[in-house]
Each structure stands twice: as C-alpha cells, then as structure tokens.
Amino acid sequence: MRFASTMLLSAFVTGLSALHALADGPLPFPDGRYVTDQSICGLDSAEMVDRYADTTGRFVRIIQGRTLEDGYELSCDISKVRRSGSDVTFLATCAAEGETKRINGHYVAIDEDAFAVSGSVFRRCASTPQETHADGLDADTDEIIELYADANDRCRGGSGDDPRTLGACGEREEYFTILTKRGWCYGREGEAGFQMEWHVCGPNSVRD
C-alpha cells in the first residue's frame, strides 16, 4: 500500500465524516483479527502478505486496544470514538512509510463481532455466528459457489433454443455478480480454463 494514496487510506477507515469531540476510547469491538471471509482466518500474517501483498488491507482489519492495523503496512492510533446506533465514528492517526495522516473514520456495526466498511463486512476470526453479508443474503459464500456451478453446468450443457438454458445462464450471471461483490474472483492470470476456481480476490486474480 502506498501511504500517499488518499483513496486507499480513506477506504481503510471509510471516507470522511463529521467528527465529534469525545473522550478517547477503543473501538466498540473485541480485540482480534477481522476478515471479509472466514476461510482466510487460517492464514498467518506472512501467508496473507505473500498471497495478497499490498491488497491485504481489503480483506483484513486488526483491532488491538486503541490500535487499528490492516495486516500489511498501515497502523493507526484510534481516538475520539463515538457510537450512535450502528454508526461508529472515530479519529485515526495513521503511520506508514514514514508519514503520518489523520483521517475521520466511519464503521457500521453489525453486531459485537462484525462491522461494515465501504460495503464489505469484516467479522472477527473465531467468532461463530451465521455468516453475514452486505448483500443481505443468508446464503454463505460456499453455497453461492455451488449454486453458480450448478447453473453454469445447466447453461453450458443445455440447448441454445431451450428457455430453461436461458434461465440457467441468467442465474449464473446473478450468482457471478453476488460473488464478485463479496470480493471473490474466478481464476488467476495465466491459468487455463480447467485450472480456474473461485477464491478471495488477490493481486493476480482475473477481474471481469
């Protein structure tokens, strides 16, 4: 991550919002590692960086007391935390690559173990409630992948003039859109078709 990129830093704490002068305090979530998909909880920090490099911050937040990190290079001191309903605002004083920047942050609390940032839901590793997604669907990502595979088989294997084939192809596109909005990609650069599979998007992922 290049610290000079205001866009990436703002995405880390989610945009600019009105800041209220309040007493210092930690974010209203337990300490831990928060991820966009629980399947990556098994990866340690080095494995995450090896796989996702400077895009790690798209998938990870680490809360430790009054410190918020992205699992890569960015570390922020948190102060002036305020919660109003599900809205959590705070001041993040962030350091990376020898520079310091102050950003007004805004997270949306989903429950005590999860929050939303720019449409992505981060849930604490080792917490076990039902998977929650910003798209409002109860189905977890593995289920959506299975539905996509079934629709893809029916789309590719059906007759071109059969309405059921057209319906299956439409279903496939809907599932594809849901998965990509959840931060999943199909295939990596340089892979042949038979090698491609769904995975959490990384630097070498194919993005359609």
Rank of each mutant, 00 (worst) to 15 (best):
L74N: 11
D113I: 00
F115L: 08
V88D: 08
E146R: 06
R124D: 00
G170T: 08
I110C: 12
Y72M: 05
Q195E: 09
I145N: 03
L8I: 03
Y52P: 02
S205A: 13
M7L: 14
C169P: 13
G119W: 01
Y52L: 02
V121T: 05
G157F: 14
I110D: 15
F122R: 00
A114C: 02
A139E: 15
R172Q: 07
D31I: 04
G25L: 06
Y186A: 15
I110V: 11
G187V: 07
M48R: 09
A116Q: 05
N204D: 10
V81D: 00
L137I: 09
A95E: 08
A126Y: 11
A149K: 05
Y175T: 02
L9N: 15
T89A: 06
K181E: 13
G157Y: 13
P203Y: 04
A21I: 13
G136D: 08
A53N: 01
E189V: 11
V121N: 04
F3C: 12
T128V: 02
R123H: 07
S39T: 12
D37I: 15
V108P: 08
T55A: 09
Y34S: 14
F3V: 11
P28M: 08
R182L: 15
L74D: 14
F90V: 00
E69M: 14
A92T: 02
C201K: 12
C201F: 11
G202Y: 07
Y34G: 12
G98T: 03
Q38R: 14
L16F: 11
L43K: 07
V60G: 02
S159A: 14
D54Q: 13
A192V: 00
D54Y: 14
T128H: 11
K101F: 11
C169Y: 04
A192C: 01
Q195L: 03
R2L: 03
T55K: 14
G25M: 08
V121H: 02
E174C: 02
T100E: 08
D87Y: 01
A168Q: 09
I40R: 09
N152G: 04
G187H: 10
L137H: 10
R33S: 08
S159R: 15
G193T: 06
D208Q: 09
T36S: 07
A46P: 04
Y148P: 03
N204V: 07
A21G: 13
D135F: 02
I103E: 01
K101S: 05
